[in-house]
Design a protein around this nucleic acid. Structure first.
Lengths: 154, 154
DNA sequence: ACGCTTCCTTACGTTGACGTTAGGTTTATG
DNA sequence: CATAAACCTAACGTCAACGTAAGGAAGCGT
């Protein structure tokens, strides 16, 4: 994959297994932006947006987040990056940055505790269904051997 | 919690943090059934249904399953229980049972691989956000000490 | 230059999972 | 036994997350 390649909307959509409409919708919702447009107005994306979209899809599919919740999280992340980038900028007061950082911390902690909860739930479900599968497999083997002997008896 | 207690629709809903409408809807979709009705037609549930509902909610919230997917899974589970219960019933042919068992096995394997995938995804997300939180916390501490010294200098 | 595909914007349609009335019945309680 | 609270069925409303269609412009291969 060539870096800085400019991808059309269909290219991105196909790569991610979604549709162009979804990209447009995410743009409407303020989740993504095309990196640039052609003279005629066609959208062009780059690798960075693709990674962001993969991130969005993980948040959706693994945590069941709504698009507005995802937007909030992305805002938190970019806010953090912004603070990091402007650390030696005297124009931003320390107080403002402290508030932003504490908001970000709370958001991240909330997210992490949700992830922890999901992990626990998933592990117990995994165990439960693994046991069920094991029982099913032993039962299946018993019935298979029974079917064989039945056929042999013919 | 007294076993075999008969719970009204509101009691169940409150216990689970959902609404009566949701219970009715799940009944419409074939996910649950009240264990019985009063003479006047009011629904009554027992502990078993409550556990089933908790199971349903886990499938929804942790795996993002739709109600029809959940219905399918529940059907598989009851089918398995049915086979187990009628093992010494000669009326059911071995062939039929074998097919049902193999279907069930496939469904369970699919579910388990989905769970595995989610677990992996969640773990990597957990790591990513944990690192982000750590960086945020160290940054916060740095800024806090900075704010303190600034105030001291006044 | 021309045809075909891709993309644009705008706008209405759809689907799942409930929420919300409405009008009438049942059940619990003083 | 009356009456308020909970419940019933049936039906329409809602919201997020897209799907789909229309009419026109842009890109591109030859």
């Amino acid at each position: 994959m060539i870096p800085n390649e400019e991808l059309t909307v269909e290219a991105v959509a196909q790569h991610l297994g979604i549709t162009a409409r979804t990209l447009h919708y995410y743009e409407e919702m303020g989740l993504i932006e095309p990196t640039c447009r052609t003279a005629g107005g066609h959208r062009l994306y780059d690798e960075k947006v693709v990674r962001k979209l993969e991130h969005i899809m993980r948040l959706k599919e693994n945590l069941g987040y709504s698009l507005s919740e995802i937007r909030h999280l992305l805002d938190v992340e970019t806010s953090l990056d912004g603070i990091r980038a402007s650390l030696n900028n005297r124009d931003v007061s320390v107080d403002v940055r402290l508030r932003q950082l504490e908001d970000a911390k709370r958001s991240l902690q909330g997210l992490l505790s949700q992830i922890d909860g999901k992990l626990e739930n998933l592990k117990s479900m995994q165990q439960r269904y693994q046991e069920r599968l094991n029982r099913t497999e032993t039962l299946l083997e018993r019935l298979e051997s029974q079917a064989v002997t039945t056929n042999e008896g013919k």
